[in-house]
Design a protein around this nucleic acid. Structure first.
Length: 592
RNA sequence: GGGAUCGUAGUUCAGUUGGUUAGAACGCCGCCCUGUCACGGCGGAGGUCGCGGGUUCGAGUCCCGUCGGUCCCGCCA
């Protein structure tokens, strides 16, 4: 094997008449009989290679036997393509290599799917032959972008005086949060390590240790059911800072995202990013991660319908319900069938139904027209900023479920009517969500649980409410939302052990449990913990949003929705001796 | 745990109210071809219709179960 002199994406007219050696995969070969072309591919691009059987019959003999994805090495002279034969779609389209030497470095059986075309192939098959799927240029581009972004992240935080510290993979299992992936201890019979769900506690301990500014590109593990945006192992850009307020934290992160968007999309983001309160998000969009590339804001129309006799509305209002509407601009011309489709969308979104009201040249049309006086409807239309030709959709019922349902419907409507261009990067919507509630309350049991995590600080003004109405206490937590995706989540932490104890108490965790589970953290907070705050950026999700792809596409070797790897076949049974060493025995499944 | 959807040559798909020998394109094999670039032309091989059971004279098609992919709900601080 020789040494290659160039890559397959490199040569141009500037290299004419040079003798070069290329190595790569046969992307395609076109045998015209008296003339033979090979497209040679590596991760940098493709170069056309030409063989003339009349001049080099030996080479042609070898070239005839080539197949797709064989690995070959060629040496030859860079020559300009004849006039009219230039391929503008190829970076190297002005030249070709006239071969003087051809070596087959490796062969390849017929492929389970064609490389260039395999975006169409069955996902199961592509995951089984992941190394072939990753040979596709578009997959390579994604992973190369991921690499560039991780470089930017490391450069950014390093330049801002952060240091990257690695934290353990074998950690203590805590019953909080997601189900842990467990690792049995060989030495301590019956004891287990857990794989970390995040480095949260460790980074707080690093702050106590005085590291001041920390970051880490960290792998996290959660044994929960999967979705198109969730994998059992995923990557966070974990960040923590001491002696800072929210503004300073936001600043550092905004500067990072400005660089990322510039690198990936060549887009300039304006700073500071807007800040929207959690309550405003919920009231206006029914979501804590709304996509603001399109409008469809909600309007609370309840006041207009006070005393309304239309039974659906009257019943709902009697039970303390609400009427919330949104305006579909210019959709009053939808057919009956199309409106029925919208009603089905609403049901899929979890709403019992939706009341359409058309604003036409002949006046209002819909169930409410005639049942509710025009003056009321006019006031409703005015509040929704609706005019002739618009279609109002109204949800009626319990406020929390209507907001949630309409929030889901809003996303479906935007897709249904293509209200935004997913490719148009200039319309990027990025903003902070602030003032999250500290706790979530279980509606049936009334118990509270942390809405972020139990180390989240609370708004100082709301401290008196902690004991009286904890569910109304605002936290210091924040999210960053881009195009409808939560990209990061963070907070200012509690750095006072007494406050931390109080929160644990509110969460109903006994002192004994605290000692057992978080004793070391509570202890650490007593030993001079600085004020601190930070966040975890969902790195996979950032790449997903930048590439508009599902999470499997942005991870080199992902798992399926059953958390299996189809390529290596894990999880798999193990040698019984290993179980014995670990003091484990298998319990057979119930129905076998 | 629940719901939806998909599973037919190596691959992507078609296959009517259940009815003769399950088709096409790409790939593969053979022959032809001097400017192709997803080259083209002619010919050929290739199928346990995911798996198991049932209904029926007859099942790729209908029913039940099961395995797997994807999406969603629950779940994921």
């Amino acid at each position: 094997m020789k040494k290659r002199t160039h890559t397959c994406g490199q040569l141009t007219k500037a290299d004419l008449n040079q003798t070069v050696t290329l190595q790569g995969w046969v992307a395609s070969h076109r045998d015209l009989g008296g003339l033979l072309f090979i497209d040679l591919r590596d991760r940098y691009g493709k170069t056309q290679v030409v063989v003339h059987p009349e001049e080099t019959p030996d080479l042609a003999g070898i070239a005839h036997t080539l197949h797709s994805e064989w690995v070959v090495e060629i040496t030859g002279i860079v020559q300009a393509r004849p006039e009219g034969m230039i391929n503008k779609d190829m970076m190297t389209g002005e030249i070709e290599i006239k071969v003087s030497h051809l070596d087959i470095l490796n062969t390849c059986p017929p492929l389970p799917f064609q490389i260039e075309d395999s975006s169409k192939a069955n996902e199961e098959l592509k995951l089984k032959y992941r190394y072939l799927d990753l040979r596709r240029p578009e997959m390579q581009e994604v992973l190369m972008l991921r690499h560039h972004i991780s470089n930017i992240v490391r450069e950014h935080f390093s330049a801002e005086d952060f240091i990257e510290v690695e934290t353990p993979f074998l950690v203590k299992s805590t019953p909080e949060g997601a189900r842990d992936y467990l690792v049995p201890s060989r030495i301590f019979e019956g004891s287990f390590y857990a794989l970390p769900q995040s480095p949260q506690i460790y980074k707080q301990l690093l702050m106590v240790a005085g590291f001041d500014k920390y970051f880490q590109i960290a792998r996290c593990f959660r044994d929960e059911d999967l979705r198109s945006d969730r994998q059992p192992e995923f990557t966070q850009i974990d960040v923590e800072m001491s002696f800072v307020d929210q503004n300073e934290i936001f600043d550092v992160i905004e500067r990072l995202f400005v660089k990322i968007l510039k690198e990936a999309w060549n887009q300039d983001l304006r700073t500071p990013f807007p800040r929207i309160t959690y309550n405003e998000c919920i009231e206006k969009y029914g979501s804590d991660k709304p996509d603001l590339r399109y409008g469809l804001e909600f309007h609370n129309l309840t006041e207009h319908f006070k005393g309304c006799e239309f039974h659906v509305i009257a019943t709902a209002l009697q039970e303390g319900g609400v009427v919330i509407g949104l305006n579909l601009k210019g959709k009053a011309n939808l057919s009956r069938k199309q409106v029925t489709e919208l009603e089905e969308l609403a049901k899929k979104a979890g709403l019992a139904g939706i009341l359409p009201l058309k604003l036409t040249a002949e006046g209002f049309k819909g169930v409410l027209a005639g049942k509710v006086d025009d003056q009321t409807l006019k006031a409703v239309a005015e509040q929704c900023q609706a005019s002739e030709g618009d279609l109002l959709l109204m949800g009626i019922g319990k406020k929390s479920s209507i907001l949630k349902g309409l929030g889901v419907l809003r996303v479906k409507l935007a897709e249904h009517f293509s209200l935004f261009d997913p490719i148009d990067r200039s319309k990027t919507s990025i903003f902070w969500v602030v003032d999250f509630p500290l706790f979530e309350r279980d509606e049936t049991t009334g118990e509270v649980s942390p809405s972020h995590h139990p180390f989240t600080g609370f708004h100082p003004d709301d401290e008196p409410m902690l004991t009286t109405e904890p569910w109304n206490v605002r936290s210091t937590a924040y999210d960053l939302v881009m195009n409808g995706n939560e990209l990061l989540s963070g907070s200012i932490r509690i750095h006072d052990s007494k406050q931390q104890a109080m929160i644990f108490d509110l969460l109903g965790i006994s002192e004994e449990e605290i000692k057992l589970r978080f004793g070391f953290l509570v202890d650490a907070l007593k030993y001079g913990a600085p004020p601190m705050g930070g966040m975890a950026i969902g790195f996979d999700r950032v790449i997903m949003v930048l590439t508009n792809r599902p999470i499997r596409d942005v991870i080199a070797f992902p798992k399926t929705t059953l958390a299996q790897s189809l390529m290596d076949g894990c999880p798999s049974p193990i040698d019984p001796q290993l179980l014995t060493d670990l003091h484990l025995a298998l319990i057979p499944p119930k129905n076998s």
